[in-house]
């Protein structure tokens, strides 16, 4: 267990988000500590995806504060987070291995670290040389998840992570999430149903009107 991550804390205070001139949410408070998981729920349009993108730094906040304490003080929240959105960021003309290798290097995996274990973790190791164009939607999703394993970042932001995954892959993802939390990482996930997290806390959006 990595103790250095245990006193990590991601917190948002009085957050507001605006999209296309419409106020999606405001006055939102939340906090997650190392080892914890927060599941964001709410009806469609309540702003679940927006909240994740806001934490990732991919959406400007309309108000409030967001910060991470106990981690790398030099890096922004986005640079310490993994974002798994609806799009897989997989290039069809590159091979499976090339796709993962690129993101691993770009997102800051240690130099020379092999990507084999990460591919192994999502059961794509034997497809490493195939062009990603040949993958099914679920396989592309798994390739996308392999990124989270290949590069260690304390915060995982998962938007409907189980979509397109079969039950075996869902179990594998649950196992990866369990390991991530056990090593002190935290998870913020947007979901409509259970995604295999143990004792998650829940943040319900859209209740304050």
């Amino acid at each position: 267990m990595r103790t250095d991550l245990i006193d990590l804390r991601l917190a948002g205070k009085d957050l507001a988000c605006e999209r296309g001139g419409r106020l999606v949410f405001s006055g939102l408070n939340f906090s997650v500590s190392g080892g914890e998981a927060l599941v964001v729920t709410g009806r469609n349009g309540a702003g679940k995806s927006s909240l994740l993108r806001l934490i990732a730094g991919l959406l400007r906040k309309a108000g409030g504060q967001l910060g991470i304490t106990g981690g790398d003080d030099e890096a922004t929240v986005g640079e310490q987070s993994h974002y798994l959105g609806h799009l897989d960021a997989v290039k069809p003309s590159l091979s499976v291995g090339e796709n993962l290798q690129f993101w691993a290097t770009y997102l800051g995996a240690p130099r020379g670290a092999p990507i084999g274990p990460a591919l192994e973790a999502v059961d794509l190791a034997q497809l490493s040389d195939l062009p990603a164009a040949y993958l099914s939607a679920g396989q592309r999703r798994r390739l996308s998840i392999a990124r989270l394993v290949a590069v260690a970042r304390p915060v995982w932001l998962l938007d409907e992570p189980t979509s397109a995954l079969d039950s075996a892959s869902q179990d594998r993802l649950a196992e990866l999430m369990r390991k991530h939390r056990a090593s002190g990482g935290m998870i913020v996930a947007a979901a409509h149903g259970p995604i295999g997290l143990d004792e998650p806390r829940e943040l319900k959006l859209g209740v304050m009107g």
Binding site: G57, L58, Y83, L87, A89, K91, W103, Y106, L107, G108
Partner: peptide, 14 residues
């Protein structure tokens, strides 16, 4: 942008 890569490019340390 269309395949989501741009999001991740923004989240790198570069």
């Amino acid at each position: 942008h269309d395949d989501g890569s741009l999001d991740l490019l923004m989240m790198g340390a570069l």
